[in-house]
Amino acid sequence: MNIFRIIGDLSHLLAIIILLRKIWKTRSCAGISGKSQILFALVYTTRYLDLVTTYVSLYNTVMKIIFIAVSIATCYLIYMKFKATYDHNHDTFRIEFLLAPAVILALLINHDFTFLEILWTFSIYLESVAILPQLFMVSKTGEAESITSHYLFALGSYRALYILNWIYRYHNEEIYDLIAIVAGIVQTALYCDFFYLYITKVLRGKKLQLPA
């Protein structure tokens, strides 16, 4: 374990807690893409199936359970409890265009053609594009509440910090995982536009307005 990964995991945990809390406190999921949340729930449930087969550490196990529980709870709030506030009209990204390539790529490029490994690979590929419906929704509505942009900043930072973790591990432990690294770079690249807007606008107290 290294500082980059710890801060990355905590940033990730912060992001999903910010989102769950925002929806719960405001009793509304306005401006939140339910489709992205479904994709994230799928990412964690397919990636963390090894909870039952491999014990890495207490930290690893506890965090996996939290990520699965919080992502499912968030989907429940969006699609069940506060369904009336879900913004169907702006959450229109076709997620089948993300799921199909992730499945195909996982079957073609993987470390091992076993059930759990294919699911893990699918999860890695899917996670790299899972935020697209949310970013698409923000671009369609032309703006995002500041709490939503804090959520996106924390979520985007987590994988950016993981890239530093992978550099650290390559130099210090001489291990690397190209699938995770390439997907992580793609994932972080998707946030660059948002990071720019967040730093130049939100941190100066302005609302996040995307050029329509």
Binding site: D50, V56, N60, W120, Y162, D177, A180
Partner: peptide
């Protein structure tokens, strides 16, 4: 070098 055999990251 060693590609990781188990996925020890989240």
């Amino acid at each position: 070098e060693g590609i990781k055999d188990i996925h020890d990251e989240l």
